[in-house]
């Protein structure tokens, strides 16, 4: 039963990926204007021999579909072409930058999860109380504030006003250790974590309010178990299934969300490269990174889908 679901989902995944790659290719390939302009600096533009040579080299005159299949075939082998502007292979750029983007997304997920569980649990336990209402206001605000605005505000507050944390650069764990790394990662990850934190806290709260009304909790209370014990052992456990799927689902979304946060903090991640590619009209780079992000997004969503199907008996039965 699960096997059949798996096959169907995989076929669908592959079809989606094919369509995504075609769309990405066409999106950028059908650009008005000559890519040569992007390749040569102004000084080189009166050198027509070079223009002709590059044209031939890149086989820019082939039909669109021929170029798509060549591009997609190369992409399958991990070759996404090289940047017109810097000559750097796109796959190298992605490889160099993925640790930063992944770390930000993971760290944001962790922050969101670790803060959301207590916030959600306590809010649920004291439903309607002072803490609950304050947190409800907080989650509403956190859910609404755009990530880039939160980022700028963090820079202003923590760097310019208090001078607590650096707002620039990225200390790689491999070079400078975890602590130095966290110093540069915490602000952007924090800005990124706001929205998922709010969503998680709300979900956990709603879920736990439901659970707390179940018979076994009531009987545990009747038995005189301590509140904290009930909260941790009995109520939180059933809620964590929802939470885990939601966290995993958010990871996909966060990869998209890092794009602008990286730009605000000037971090050497995928998003910064995508946006600088856009500013430089680096067509191959835009294509490659967009395809990569979309692929990760699709695959993560498909995996979460499967995970959910595997874990939740109600869905499995359908």
């Amino acid at each position: 039963m699960l096997g059949k679901v798996l096959v169907v989902k995989t076929v669908r995944l592959i079809a989606t990926l094919f369509a995504v790659s075609l769309l990405t290719f066409l999106l950028v390939e059908q650009l008005p204007g000559d890519p040569i302009l992007a390749i040569l600096p102004p000084g080189g533009l009166d050198d027509l021999e070079t223009i002709e040579r590059i044209r031939k080299e890149l086989r820019l005159d082939d039909p669109v579909l021929t170029r798509y299949f060549r591009w997609a075939g190369d992409a399958l082998q991990g070759d996404l072409g090289k940047s017109y502007i810097t000559d750097q292979p796109v796959s190298d750029a992605i490889k160099d930058r993925i640790p930063v983007t992944m770390e930000l997304a993971l760290l944001a997920t962790l922050i969101a999860a670790f803060l959301a569980i207590p916030i959600g649990a306590i809010s649920a336990y004291r439903e309607g109380g002072y803490f609950d209402r304050t947190m409800s206001a907080f989650t509403t605000a956190a859910l609404s504030i755009p990530g880039f605005l939160a980022g700028i505000f963090f820079i202003w507050l923590f760097t310019l006003k208090f001078n607590w944390l650096p707002s620039t650069g990225w200390n790689r764990i491999t070079d400078k250790g975890l602590l130095a790394n966290l110093q540069t990662a915490i602000l952007p990850a924090g800005a990124l974590a706001l929205a998922p934190l709010a969503i998680n806290a709300r979900l956990i709260r709603a879920d736990m309010i439901g659970t707390l009304k179940e018979d076994y909790i009531l009987s545990a209370k009747a038995k005189g178990l301590r509140d904290r014990y009930i909260l941790m052992r009995h109520a939180l456990r059933p809620s964590s299934l929802t939470a885990i799927t939601v966290f995993a689902l958010q990871l996909g979304g966060l990869i998209g969300g890092t794009v602008v946060i990286e730009n605000v903090f000037a971090l050497p991640g995928l998003g910064t490269r995508l946006i600088s590619g856009i500013y430089q009209r680096d067509v191959v780079m835009i294509q490659g990174i967009t395809l990569f992000i979309a692929t990760v997004y699709v695959v993560v969503n498909a995996l979460v889908d499967l995970l959910y199907a595997a874990l939740d008996p109600r869905i499995r039965r359908q």
């Binding site: 669908r12 079809a15 989606t16 369509a19 995504v20 769309l23 990405t24 999106l27 950028v28 650009l31 008005p32 996909g252 979304g253 990869i255 998209g256 969300g257 794009v259 602008v260 995508l274 946006i275 856009i278 067509v283 835009i286 967009t290 992000i293 979309a294 997004y297 699709v298 969503n301």
Partner: peptide, 23 residues
Amino acid sequence: MATLDVILAFPPLVLLLALVAVY
């Protein structure tokens, strides 16, 4: 639904960035 899934396969901001910037 399958067609729409392709559009939904992109993170919205990334697709918009590419579209708006490129065109």
